[in-house]
């Protein structure tokens, strides 16, 4: 059952137009944990002087990864939507480096899935950003 759910979750995540457009790739998705990476892309620069990526691009990566964690959780049988997402920016991502996010869906009720995530670049000891959010659980009251 889990393997089938992981496969469906992967299929769905890989069909997201915005995530595809940003060349995100799903490195891992299983049992409420997802790892998604996004290569450096000049289209996503937020600061022309330094070449640092825009915060919004980090948000898109965080939201995608958190959503992937939710749809792969055994207690959430279907799709999901973001209810709220908070992102804290610790430092600028180093220009030229791939961003990698790990999200964990750490609690699921009948209606809500709670998720936290960390984004890093090649220096994995110093987080670039962290996120925490609440997502819908399919079949739950909206």
């Amino acid at each position: 059952m889990n393997i089938e759910q992981d496969r469906i979750a992967r299929q769905f995540m890989e069909a997201i137009p915005h995530s595809k457009d940003l060349n995100m790739s799903l490195e891992k998705i299983s049992k409420g944990v997802a790892i998604v990476s996004m290569p450096y892309d000049e289209r996503l620069i937020g600061d022309v002087e330094t070449g640092v990526l825009a915060g919004g691009a980090v948000s898109a990566l965080m939201d995608t990864c958190c959503g992937a964690a939710v749809v792969s959780h055994p207690d959430n049988p279907g799709l999901t939507a973001t209810l709220d997402l908070r992102i804290d920016y610790m430092r600028a991502a180093t220009p030229g480096q791939t961003l990698r996010t790990r999200a964990e869906c750490y609690h699921v009720t009948k209606s809500v899935a709670f998720v936290r995530a960390v984004a890093t670049d090649e220096d994995e000891d110093r987080p670039v950003a962290t996120a925490s959010g609440a997502f819908t659980v399919s079949g739950g009251a909206s």
């Binding site: 997201i16 137009p17 915005h18 898109a60 939201d63 995608t64 959503g67 799709l79």
Partner: peptide
């Protein structure tokens, strides 16, 4: 900018950005 192709919803990350 689509996040969910089934219901054609904007991506949550697009909204945030």
């Amino acid at each position: 900018l689509i996040g969910n192709p089934l219901i054609r919803a904007l991506h949550g990350g697009v909204t945030a950005a």
